[in-house]
Design a protein around this nucleic acid. Structure first.
Lengths: 230, 230
DNA sequence: GCAAAAGTGTTAGACCTACACCCATGG
DNA sequence: CCATGGGTGTAGGTCTAACACTTTTGC
């Protein structure tokens, strides 16, 4: 069976960050090609001897120097045959979360610039990256309700109000503060620390920590994380 | 940017069927290649001007002549660089459901033979197809609880006991008959017909029908299908 | 003492779970 | 009349949803 196939495989990463009550996405400005100066998702072509995951991590490293907290395969975009004007590309998109948008971004060799954009103030994007981003946002919204991935968007120690705001912001709706806290604490996977956050106004707030070990142990015994509010 | 990439893209389909209280998978026996006579998932290489979905449908047509009820992208397997002994292949796996395993299978040009196998009595599979199948089975199990995909495995009109058995079989646990029926009927998306199934023993059982239009309408208003039993 | 955000309980209703008997038919 | 599978209701407990005031701090 002779096989003449001329399709290229790329990976793209949708990197979400959370800061100042906003959900942000990491984009890079392209340095080369017809699409020079357009904003795009982090990504690039897969090397012959490289796994898909390795390719994503390499691109993240090369283009932004960032280290993500959570990474999972999102979807493979390959139904638009003319997606890339240069040649046919099938792109395996990955979904990533990092804690704190404040980390230093280093625009490295392949990207002219790397920057965080609020999900509500996106620039024009290259290729079909807008569609990919929408898919990622929906995945984030749905996963937030049944997996403890919100913690991957926060620093190790966080205020309860930050967690609460994160849920409100990403799910785009209001949540009852008391019920939310009760539910989260009832799981026993979020622990109070001795420390306090440095807020300027109002009563000082305790810092909390997500206990991942405990979560994993509970999961083995059939525990299901679930947050659903009216 | 010169690009020398030598990776091929394939699609594979995991086709589930349900008959005689058993969950079945459609496999084909390979006609050519080093893996001749091994059983494998339906699948093949993507053509240059063909979308991924079109490629899956074409392979399904060519290899089995089957028409599926439900088709969605499952996962892209590309982290095992030596997956296929011939050359590096990245495979986009699709997840498909058909109603009634009794439909006629025609082993066509590319496959020596196409056959249904019970998920519990699988032969040795080619490549990493066993792993793909496991992933598909987990997806089926989890989707069954929050999307009405069980109906895609049944004929248009079905007995309540068939639906019930389908859930028990796929989820591999017992379900309370009364609670199950109550829950399903409470959604208002399954309707009683005037007809009766032709059972041999016992009291005649009414046939029911899934009303997809109604389901879609309800979903727009925020309805969530969910079946969770202890 | 006032503004700002943190922290905290209760109650009514909805939903889930567990459970067993009668019904309609064919042989 | 008996064997077989179909069809049905209720009560107790659990979980959810709705709701507002007090506390601690900085200014």
């Amino acid at each position: 069976m002779e096989l003449k196939q001329n399709i290229k495989i790329a990976v793209d990463a949708i990197v979400f960050g959370y800061a100042d009550n906003k959900l942000n996405v990491l984009l890079i400005k392209q340095k080369f090609g017809e699409l020079k100066n357009q904003w795009a998702l982090v990504g690039g072509f897969v090397k012959d001897n490289e796994t898909l995951i390795d390719a994503v991590n390499r691109e993240l490293q090369e283009e932004t120097g960032i280290k993500v907290n959570y990474l999972e395969q999102l979807f493979t975009f390959g139904d638009n045959v003319n997606r890339d004007p240069r040649f046919r590309v099938v792109s395996v998109a990955y979904f990533a979360l990092v804690n704190s948008t404040k980390l230093v971004l280093q625009a490295d060799s392949d990207a002219e610039d790397a920057k965080w954009f609020s999900i509500n103030e996106l620039p024009k994007l290259a290729f079909d990256h807008k569609e990919i981003l929408k898919t990622a946002q929906r995945r984030l919204q749905s996963k937030l309700s049944y997996q403890p991935i919100g913690f991957d968007l926060l620093p190790k120690e966080f205020l309860f109000s930050e967690l609460e705001n994160l849920y409100c912001t990403i799910l785009e709706r209001k949540i009852d503060r008391r019920n939310f806290r009760k539910k989260i604490l009832s799981f026993g996977i979020v622990e109070e620390t001795e420390k306090f956050g440095n807020k300027i106004k109002g009563r000082p707030a305790k810092l909390y920590r997500f206990n991942k070990q405990k979560y994993n142990k509970l999961v083995k015994d059939g525990f299901l994380f679930e947050i659903n509010f009216a």
